[in-house]
């Protein structure tokens, strides 16, 4: 995923701000990374390099920590966040098939964001509505009894919504 120049600058500045005044002992590494993630929503490579330089450790060590913990994202979250439930019930009802369907349709892997930043894909543990398994949560909206065809349907409805929104906006502008 390519970051824009602006995003890179913001990431570097935010990271430097967080790092200022923090001691360079390695124990602060994860808290710092968490703060970067809180501010930016993800931890881009430039931020990792800044952090590595501050703690005087190889950049690959920071990358190792980031990839070790699920809580860290490497890519900016998409406009629509798709969360596939991987709880026991959903798993038994074929959540991995649903995951594959999303990956195929969005052409990304879990943890990534589409090139147009519209969708990001995540696996989550139980979302608490096992009777509807397999479940996919898109933003805050819960979708139960998902099938691969339903994935296509959901994506289609999002495209439709987007078109309608654009049309409505266009209409407003014309009205003015």
């Amino acid at each position: 995923m390519k970051l824009t120049a602006e995003e890179t600058i913001v990431a570097v500045e935010t990271t430097r701000e967080i790092l200022s005044g923090i001691h360079d002992s390695r124990g602060s590494l994860i808290p710092v990374l968490q703060r970067v993630q809180n501010k930016l929503g993800y931890v881009p490579p430039v931020a990792m390099q800044e952090v590595a330089a501050h703690f005087n450790i190889p950049a690959v060590d920071v990358y190792g920590v980031i990839t070790f913990y699920n809580q860290f994202r490497l890519t900016p979250p998409g406009k629509n966040q798709v969360k596939i439930c991987m709880g026991t019930a959903c798993h038994m009802r074929g959540a991995n098939i649903i995951q594959e369907a999303w990956e195929r349709r969005l052409k990304i892997k879990v943890g990534e964001t589409t090139e147009d930043r519209e969708f990001s894909l995540e696996r989550v543990a139980c979302v608490g509505c096992c009777t509807m398994a397999p479940v996919v949560v898109i933003n805050e909206e819960v979708n139960g009894k998902i099938t691969p065809t339903r994935v296509d349907g959901l994506l289609f409805s999002y495209e439709l919504d987007k078109k309608n929104e654009a049309a409505a906006k266009g209409g407003e502008n014309n009205g003015q």
Binding site: Q49, P58, A59, V60, D61, Y63, G64, T67, F68
Partner: peptide, 24 residues
């Protein structure tokens, strides 16, 4: 790699996916 002063290689990911890799 660390002894040679380069520090290019490191462990990344976790569990079965754990692998020796480079930054990014």
């Amino acid at each position: 790699c660390r002894r040679s002063g380069n520090s290019i290689l490191g462990f990344t990911s976790r569990g079965f996916e754990r692998v020796v890799a480079t930054f990014g």
